[in-house]
Design a protein around this nucleic acid. Structure first.
Lengths: 344, 344
DNA sequence: CCGGAACGTGCAAACGTTTGCACGTTCTTT
DNA sequence: AAAGAACGTGCAAACGTTTGCACGTTCCGG
C-alpha cells in the first residue's frame, strides 16, 4: 500500500490555466491588488470561491520567509494534564487565533532533553517564536541560548530561564503568598506551616519571601521547623503527620499548590482535627480540586488564561515588530485570594 | 519598526558554496545517499554538524508534498481545561512525537463555527490528517464531509460525527456504566439515580443502555423519575435536593462525569446524609477531582492517554498507508471501575 | 499626430529542498 | 588497448506562492 495523499488540491496554476491568464494575475487578483482590472479580479475571485480554492500555506511560508512572518507559534509545556498549564494554553490559543496565528504544541514531560529536541524541531519548522515554561530539571540552557542568539522571539512564563534576559510573564507569587499568609494571621493563626518548592527556582524564592514578610509584619517568629519543601500530595501525606506531632503544633498550613493542600486537608481530617476550627489551610492555583474538596479550599488563584494572553501578546508584538527585541518585556499577572471553607 | 526575523539560517546553498560543491551533492550527502563518495559525505556532514545546520522543514514539506507525507497532525479539542481531553492530548503527543510527527493544536470551545474554521485552516496548513472530538453543538457537518471527500485522513474520538463513516476511537461507555451500576447493586442499592448527557450523542445512548441493562439483569425496575439529563456541577446542585425529596428517595447516584458526582456528593453531605452508609455515589472519568473529594469518589476510569495513543496510531497508519482508507477503523478502549470511598 | 502617462498583464526569479538525468572520470574486463 | 560498467558529481526542474520589472495597449493633452 502506498502512502496516502489527499486528493489533488486546486492551485493557482489550475485557476490560471482554466481562465487563460497567468499565475501572477491570479495571485494579484486574489490579493485584491489594484493593478488588476475589476472584471478580471471579480472573475478570478468568483472562480476561486466556486471551486473552493485554498491557498497553500506551506508555499506561502516558504515564499515569504524573508519578509512576512510565519504565523505559527511554538508552545512547550511541562505537562498537559495540569489545570494551570491547560489554562495558560487556553489563553495562548484564544489570543493567537484571534490574531491569525496557529499553535504547534508539545510537552517536555519535565525532561530536559525532550525540551531541547522540541525547541530544535520547532526552529526547523520555522515557527515565528516560542512560548515556554521550562522543565523543572533543565540545567543546560544551550538550546535556549542558541535560539536566543539566532534572534528567535522567546517568551517564558512562570518558570523562567535564568541564563538569558528573556521576555517573560510571571504571576505575583510574592504578593499572593503574602496576602494569603496575612489572611491566615488575621483569621487568628499564630503558627503557620509552609509547604513550598525548592528555592533554586525564582518562584520558590518569591513565595517563601512573601511568607516570611507576612510573618514579620505581624510580629510573628519565623520557625524553620514549620517550613518544608513539598509540592505534591503523596509527600504531603508523609510529612503532615510529623508536623502535627510537633510540641507546638501548627494551627494553619499554606501550600504552594492545591494538590498539596488537599493532601494536607485529608491528613488533618483523618487525625480528627476540625477544619477550619482547629486547623486552617490555604492553597495556591485555584484549580477544580479546590472546589471538589470538603470544605472547599481557600486558595490563591492564578489566572492562567491571563498569563497565556499576555505571553501570546508579547510574542506576537515581537514578531510584528511592535516591541523591541533587545529589551526584555516583563509582565506581572495579579493573583487573587479566594476565601472558601478551609479558613474562616 | 520592522517585522522581526530570526537571523539568516544556514542553508544547503551556503554549505555548497563554502565547500565548492553543488546543492544536490550536499542534499545527497546529508541524506546518506550511496552515490556520494565517503570522503565528501563525511566532509559535508561534519561541516553541517559544526555549523549546526538544520534542514528547513517548510521547504521539505513543499518539495515533498507530492510524495512524502507531511508529518504534522491537526488536533481539535472542545476544551483544553479538561482532565480527560488533556489526557487524550498527552496520549496523542506521546505517540506522535515518538513517530516523528508534530501537532498543530486548536480548541473549538464547543463552538461549531470555530470548529469549521479550524478544520479549514488545518487543511490549508497541509496537515497530514486530523484527530478530533466534535463540539457538542455541531449540527452541520459540511466541513467534515469536505475533508472526507478530499481524502484527508480523519480520526474521531469519543464524540463521533454521525454523518460520515469515519475512523474512530471510543471508550466502552456501555460496559463501563453497566459495571458501575452493577457494582452499586451489589453494594445493596435498590434505587439508583442516573445523571446523564443528552441522548442525541451516541455516548449518551450507550451509557443509558448500560444503566438500564444492569437494572434489568438484577430484576430492578427502571424508574423514569430517577433519570435526568445533567452533566455539570451547578445543575447537579439544583436537581439533587429534589431527587432526595422523592417519596422513595434514591439510595445511590451514578453520574456521567466526576464533576457532576462531586456536586451530588456535596448536596448529599449538606443534607446530613452519610456517604457511603446512607447514599452511595459513582462517577465517570477518573479525574483528580475524584481524589480531592471526601470520601474519595468511586469512578469509572477512562484512560484518555490510551485513547490518544490509539487515535494517533490509526492516523499515522492511514497516512503511511498501513491501513486502508476506505474501511473505517474502529477501536474500543476499556474502562475500569475504581472503587473508592463513596461506595462500599 | 505624436509623446507619454496610466493601466493591465505576463515573465521570471526567488524561497530551500529533492531527484531524474546526463556527464565525465576511473576501474574492470576481455 | 578498447569497451563498457561503476562511480561521483552537477544541472535543472519541481513543489505553490509572491513580486519587481518590463511589455503592450489605451487614452489623453499639446
Amino acid at each position: 500500500m502506498e502512502p496516502n495523499q489527499p486528493n489533488s488540491t486546486l492551485t493557482m496554476k489550475d485557476i490560471a490555466r482554466q481562465l487563460g491568464v497567468s499565475v501572477a494575475t491570479v495571485s494579484r487578483a486574489l490579493k485584491d491588488s489594484p493593478s488588476i482590472s475589476k472584471e478580471r479580479r471579480d472573475q478570478i475571485q468568483q472562480f476561486a470561491r466556486e471551486h473552493n480554492y485554498m491557498p497553500n500555506i506551506v508555499a506561502e511560508q516558504l515564499r515569504n520567509s524573508r519578509n512576512a512572518p510565519v504565523k505559527i507559534i511554538g508552545v512547550v509545556l511541562p505537562e498537559f494534564i495540569h489545570y494551570y498549564f491547560s489554562s495558560v494554553l487556553t489563553g495562548i490559543e484564544l489570543e493567537a487565533s484571534s490574531r491569525g496565528y496557529r499553535l504547534l504544541v508539545a510537552s517536555s514531560y519535565e525532561q530536559a532533553e525532550r525540551e531541547a529536541t522540541i525547541c530544535e524541531e520547532f526552529y526547523r519548522n520555522k515557527v515565528c517564536g516560542i512560548i515556554i515554561s521550562q522543565s523543572k530539571n533543565t540545567t543546560n540552557y544551550d538550546h535556549f541560548k542558541r535560539l536566543y542568539s539566532d534572534q528567535l522571539p522567546l517568551v517564558f512564563f512562570d518558570r523562567i530561564c535564568p541564563a538569558i534576559n528573556a521576555h517573560r510573564v510571571v504571576v505575583d507569587d510574592y504578593q499572593g503568598t503574602r496576602k494569603a499568609v496575612t489572611h491566615l494571621i488575621e483569621c487568628g493563626c499564630k503558627r503557620i506551616a509552609y509547604y513550598g518548592t525548592s528555592t533554586n527556582m525564582e518562584i520558590g524564592v518569591n513565595r517563601l519571601n512573601g511568607y516570611k514578610d507576612a510573618l514579620y509584619q505581624h510580629g510573628l517568629q519565623y520557625d524553620e521547623q514549620l517550613v518544608c519543601m513539598c509540592d505534591n500530595r503523596s509527600d504531603a501525606e508523609m510529612i503532615t503527620p510529623r508536623m502535627l506531632e510537633l510540641p507546638q503544633r501548627p494551627d494553619a498550613f499554606f501550600a504552594v499548590n492545591d494538590e498539596t493542600a488537599v493532601g494536607i486537608l485529608h491528613v488533618v481530617k483523618n487525625m480528627g482535627l476540625r477544619v477550619p476550627d482547629e486547623i486552617q489551610i490555604c492553597g495556591f492555583t485555584g484549580s477544580n480540586e479546590a472546589l471538589a474538596s470538603d470544605p472547599q479550599l481557600t486558595s490563591v488563584e492564578q489566572d492562567g488564561i491571563q498569563v497565556g494572553h499576555e505571553a501570546a501578546d508579547i510574542l506576537i508584538k515581537l514578531v510584528e515588530g511592535q516591541l523591541p527585541r533587545d529589551h526584555a518585556e516583563k509582565r506581572l499577572v495579579k493573583t487573587h485570594l479566594v476565601v472558601r471553607g478551609t479558613t474562616r
